[in-house]
Simulated assay, not measured.
Amino acid sequence: MPRPPRLSPDEITAALNGLPAWSGDGDGLRRTVELPSFRDAVDAVVRIADVAEEMDHHPDVDLRWRTLHLALVSHSAGGVTDLDVQLARRIDALLPG
């Protein structure tokens, strides 16, 4: 599978305008979300894992009690690609605002 092209800084800025819960730059997209309980956070990780497997594109996930720290980057492309933006949108559909 060919590696996806990196997004330009302007493309990343435009994408982030549509992803208000996320921040980032050419090195990656990041989001932190606090869930009501540890179990809710674990369940969210499982839902994210299902989407990541479906897309064959996997986020870095750091679970701290009930807080998730998510990071998206296309390592094969050395930066942010459209796959990261698509995954961020899919994750947003799974998590509270």
Rank of each mutant, 00 (worst) to 15 (best):
M55W: 01
T67E: 13
A52V: 00
D43R: 15
D60C: 05
L68E: 01
R66D: 05
E54I: 03
I48C: 01
M55G: 04
V42R: 13
L63E: 10
A49M: 07
L63V: 05
H58S: 01
I48W: 02
D62M: 14
A49L: 06
A52I: 01
M55D: 06
V46H: 12
A44I: 00
A49V: 08
H58V: 01
A71G: 11
L72Y: 02
D56I: 09
V51G: 05
V73C: 07
A44V: 02
R64L: 14
L63T: 09
A71I: 09
M55Y: 06
W65T: 13
V61Y: 06
D62E: 15
D43H: 14
I48Y: 04
E53M: 09
W65G: 07
D56P: 01
T67M: 14
P59G: 04
D60P: 00
V42M: 15
I48D: 00
D56W: 03
E54W: 08
R66K: 15
I48Q: 02
H57G: 07
H57F: 06
L72S: 04
A71H: 12
V73E: 03
A71K: 13
M55T: 02
L70N: 02
D60I: 01
E54Y: 08
R64W: 12
V46P: 05
H58E: 02
L63D: 04
R66Y: 03
D62R: 14
R64F: 12
T67G: 03
R64M: 07
D60Q: 12
V51E: 06
V51T: 13
R47K: 15
A49F: 05
D62P: 06
V51L: 08
E53K: 11
V73F: 00
A44K: 01
L70S: 04
R47H: 09
V45D: 09
D43Y: 12
E53I: 08
L70Q: 05
D62T: 14
L63Y: 04
V51F: 09
A52P: 00
L72N: 02
E53R: 10
W65I: 11
D50A: 13
R66V: 02
R66W: 00
R66H: 11
A71Q: 12
E54F: 05
W65C: 10
V46G: 08
D56T: 04
R47C: 05
L70M: 06
R66I: 10
H69S: 15
H58W: 05
V61K: 07
A71F: 09
E53V: 11
V46N: 13
D43F: 08
R47E: 13
E53S: 12
T67W: 05
W65H: 15
R66N: 14
I48F: 04
V61A: 10
T67D: 06
M55E: 12
A44R: 03
V46Q: 15
M55C: 04
V73K: 02
